[in-house]
Amino acid sequence: MTAAALEIAGLTRTFAGPPAVTALAGVDLTVRPGEVFALLGPNGAGKTTTVGVCTTRVRPTAGTVALDGIDVARAPVRVKQRIGVVTQYNTLDRACTVFENLYYHCRYHGWGGREAAGRTGELLAQFRLADRAAAMAQTLSGGLAQRVQLARAIAHRPSMLFLDEPTAGLDPQSRLALWELIAGLRAQGITVLLTTHYMEEADRLSDRVAIIDHGKVLVTGTAAELKQRVGADTIVELQLERLDDALVARLEALPPVRRVHRGEHGLRVFGTARDGLIPPIVEAALPYGLADLRIHEPTLETVFIQLTGRELRD
């Protein structure tokens, strides 16, 4: 049994008000060495605060975080040697070029000039940034800046990488490019804690997922395990002009239907088999002004809705 790469136990953090805010209300998590672990939750769930404590920048109110067995609050300098961090916001050094951002990062980690320059060249090639080496950091687009931030985060060869909403606000193409790079890092065996409110991101990149809301972890497991919890293999979303209890009762009485959730604009019907599921639902819903119908398999978003009754991007 290998020791945990990251062990979070009973972590709480309250911010003095007014109004006082409880950002973390007792978070417990274990990240194993070499895995990509996603912390999925809506904005304000406590993801960034969790990463802040793990990366020594936020003090916990109570609880402990151990990284490779090192207490983060007691030995921040030793922890900082082992971690790389990509923040949601662009924190590149605006007064420096792309090359200098990477080069001085290595110097801040105690590397000599020649080593730092060599590593910078390597990273510029790996992240396809060579033609931007002399560009000032402030001139970069959002996608490019995140790429430089990712290169900077791994420059000193950390054992664990924290990616806090790495693709928030990026265009789809830049997001895909960054996903590819993150998948590449996973192949190199680096442990990653990724926070995101995009369920596709958690689904696609991570080995395991924890769903977090209101400063608490609700559930942890592989994406497949979490989706199984939904207890249905087909979800039919109905957009209706009118909502009625009679309709809900009628749908729930259909044999392949497990449950019906009432949403703001319609119903979400959880069924077990696709064959024979759709026609009776359509027939029942037509008199209520059926405007749209979507059929999909359970997603992490479905899991979140089931756990909280809310949508991820509320």
Binding site: T56, V77, I83, T87, T91, D93, R94, N101, Y108, H109
Partner: peptide, 21 residues
């Protein structure tokens, strides 16, 4: 520079995360 680095851009972050007190 420090008011900027500590302000909206948080440019100081990379030096805050350097393994130094």
């Amino acid at each position: 520079p420090l008011t900027m680095e500590l302000g909206a851009t948080r440019e100081i972050e990379d030096r805050v995360l350097a393994p130094v007190a």
